[in-house]
């Protein structure tokens, strides 16, 4: 009788085909990530049909490699977990279809996982979770403050009303001539420049916990275009620093306010943009100064992007809570907590 809980987890919501084997919800035995980023760079962003085509090219190879690397067989597995939303529908469908097929073929339970819960659970590889808990999720498609009252009980406190933070990075990156995805380069430049432009801090004083980045994006683009018309060259490093400072200020301010209102034991920082060093430094400092009793859990940088391991960790908890999907499971591109 196997005592290990081994979950085979699928993640294909955007431009990464990833399959992982996770033991007891906290140990990564394998985490195969095949990224399509070089393909979508050609188009300046993710093209959904191209993404779906890459996923189907990769899916069985990643599956085989995930099991081989983990040194386990199908007989050792406890369950299959899969991201079924939110994300691109055609991309999600490859993972959902493959996961259902493996569950059927090997008589394994199927666990449906919300992609955003997955991001939060990237933090589980750093520390045990304690509740109540708060999560700041920042990625290319989402910016959310989530309150987790108890295990597996998620509530959105605030979310973006327009662009996600990562989306804003890519859009202003384009204006500065930085190829998609722009986050890393802007982050590096920001560390070399200063906040001299003082862009607006959108909704910083608004009572809600919602975010908005489109005003900042417009202000940024106007500043650059006006300068171009006047033939003035602006310092890219200062532009990046000013933009990043505004984004980070808004994220930090809202998080600070939410923590005042909802005292929690832990704050989890996760999602693709959580790899941003400026954001990590700021949240770390704020937490030490303003919320020293709340433990900060930052998702490891290599687990901030989409990956199967985080889905396996979230799937483990969903499994303990008896969450199961049937063979009619469908992709749900607009899935929310």
């Amino acid at each position: 009788m196997a005592t290990r809980n081994l979950i085979l987890a699928f993640e294909t919501s955007c431009d990464e085909t990833s399959i992982a084997v996770v033991e007891d919800g906290k140990t990564i035995l394998s985490n195969i990530v095949a990224t399509q980023i070089d393909s979508h760079k050609r188009f300046g962003g993710v093209v959904p049909e191209v993404a779906s085509r890459h996923h189907i090219e990769q899916i069985t190879r990643c599956l085989d490699e995930a099991l081989t690397t983990a040194e386990v067989t199908y007989d050792d597995l406890t369950a299959v977990a899969v991201t079924y939303g939110p994300g691109l529908v055609g991309a999600l469908l490859i993972g959902v279809t493959a996961a259902k097929t493996v569950a059927f073929a090997h008589h394994l339970p199927l666990i449906p996982v919300n992609h955003m819960a997955g991001h939060i659970y990237a933090g589980r590889f750093v520390s045990e979770f304690e509740f109540p808990q708060m999560a700041l999720l920042v990625s290319g498609g989402h910016t959310e403050l989530v309150y987790i009252k108890s295990e597996n009980e998620f509530e959105i406190l605030g979310e973006t009303r327009d662009d996600a933070a990562g989306e804003a990075y890519d859009k202003i990156g384009r204006v500065l001539g930085v190829n998609y995805p722009a986050g890393k380069t802007i982050d590096t430049w920001a560390h070399e420049g200063n906040d001299t432009f003082e862009f607006p801090r959108a909704m910083e004083k608004d009572a809600s916990y919602d975010f908005s980045f489109s005003g900042l994006k417009s202000a940024f683009i106007n500043t650059v275009h006006n300068a171009e018309q006047r033939g003035v060259e602006l310092n890219k490093q200062d532009l990046a620093a000013s933009f990043q400072q505004s984004v980070v200020d808004v994220l930090a301010e809202k998080t600070d306010r939410a923590l005042d209102r909802y005292p929690v034991k832990q704050l989890v920082l996760a999602g693709g943009v959580a790899a941003n060093l400026g954001l990590r430094e700021r949240i770390e400092r704020d937490m030490q100064e303003r919320h020293p009793d709340t433990k900060l859990i930052m998702a490891p940088i290599k687990l901030c992007g989409d990956n199967g391991a985080m889905v396996g960790a979230a799937g483990y908890v969903a499994y303990q809570h008896q969450q199961r999907a049937e063979m009619n499971l469908n992709a749900d591109p607009g899935l929310s907590f």
């Binding site: 779906s52 189907i56 599956l63 493959a98 097929t101 090997h106």
Partner: peptide, 19 residues
Amino acid sequence: SYTGIRIAVTTAKTLAATL
């Protein structure tokens, strides 16, 4: 249909590979 074909092909290749 692109999405349609991918459903059966993903199911078929995963079944064949896994079994």
